[in-house]
């Protein structure tokens, strides 16, 4: 058993991938609580899709993929913000328009580049293909995201709970909202490497959804979310190594299994208590 665990660890590519995965999981877990309770699941998904053209253009230009993705994510956040501040649309409408348009542009560009196979790991993730440079970039972004959430924790808290109070004490809920979106966008970008564009949402939403079934304290939700995200990454890794299963799908299914278990547990608890 011990050998079963340690065997893959002697390979550098495996260690790099696992390191990247754990960093991503930590960042996603920390953001997850706020994404779920601020009702931002849709925008998380939208951002994940909207970065596709950035990735493809970066590949066409020979720039690093993550840099292109980050640029696309930030442009999308700004575009959604501009459309929404127009007051003619609600935010989810702006998100829908930008998200579909950007994703379609990405698909079209992928088609032009012509190497759809090479790019399939963008869509579905390729956790074992992480380079040293990727790892450094992922580490920087992950630590920055966690650090900033902790630094602005009380501002995130007050703008989530009571926008009017935030405004009344001179704190702009909108500025916090867009700042937070940029963190979500950056995390989405580094997460695409592990679970892919299509399934990033699972890492951003499912951990806190699961945790919220078990506790009602934000701190505990964040700790538990991070734990679930980390465990799912590790599980995804080993199945990917031993059974040659797609890592992204495995990670998402492990998260979903946690969710179903927590859901059943909370239902059962409710039944036996009453």
């Amino acid at each position: 058993m011990a050998q079963w665990i340690t065997e893959p660890l002697q390979y550098v590519f495996f260690l790099k991938g696992l390191g990247a995965g754990l960093l991503v999981a930590a960042a996603c877990g920390v953001l997850s609580g706020f994404i779920v309770w601020r009702g931002m699941a849709f925008i998380g998904d939208a951002l994940a899709h909207a970065i596709l053209p950035g990735i493809v253009i970066a590949l066409m230009l020979g720039i690093h993929m993550l840099i292109g993705a980050l640029a696309a994510a930030i442009i999308s956040v700004l575009a959604i913000g501009t459309l929404t501040s127009h007051r003619r649309f609600k935010e989810d409408t702006s998100i829908g328009v930008i998200f579909a348009g950007a994703f379609a542009l990405g698909i079209l560009l992928m088609n032009r580049v012509g190497t759809f196979q090479d790019l399939s790991h963008i869509l579905f993730g390729n956790i074992l293909g992480v380079s040293s440079f990727d790892l450094i970039l992922i580490a920087i972004v992950a630590f920055l995201v966690i650090f900033l959430v902790l630094l602005f924790f009380k501002e995130l808290l007050v703008t989530s709970f009571d926008r009017t109070h935030a405004l009344a004490i001179g704190l702009s809920p909108l500025a916090i909202h867009y700042g937070f979106l940029i963190l979500v966008a950056s995390t989405t970008v580094i997460a695409t490497q592990t679970v892919g564009v299509v399934m990033v949402l699972a890492l951003l939403v499912t951990p806190a959804a699961t945790a919220s079934l078990l506790t009602k304290e934000l701190w505990k939700i964040i700790m538990l979310s991070t734990f679930f995200a980390l465990v799912s990454i590790i599980a995804g890794f080993y199945t990917s190594y031993y059974f040659d299963a797609p890592s992204g799908a495995t990670i998402v299914l492990v998260l979903t299994a946690f969710f179903l278990a927590a859901f059943t547990y909370s239902k059962a608890k409710l039944r036996f208590n009453v």
């Binding site: 009380k154 808290l157 007050v158 989530s160 709970f161 009571d162 004490i169 001179g170 304290e217 934000l218």
Partner: peptide, 20 residues
Amino acid sequence: TVDWSFPVSVRQVVTMGRYV
């Protein structure tokens, strides 16, 4: 105007009065 479903405790909400 307040999101009562948000997971915060009574103490955390009262502490928001100190943020200013």
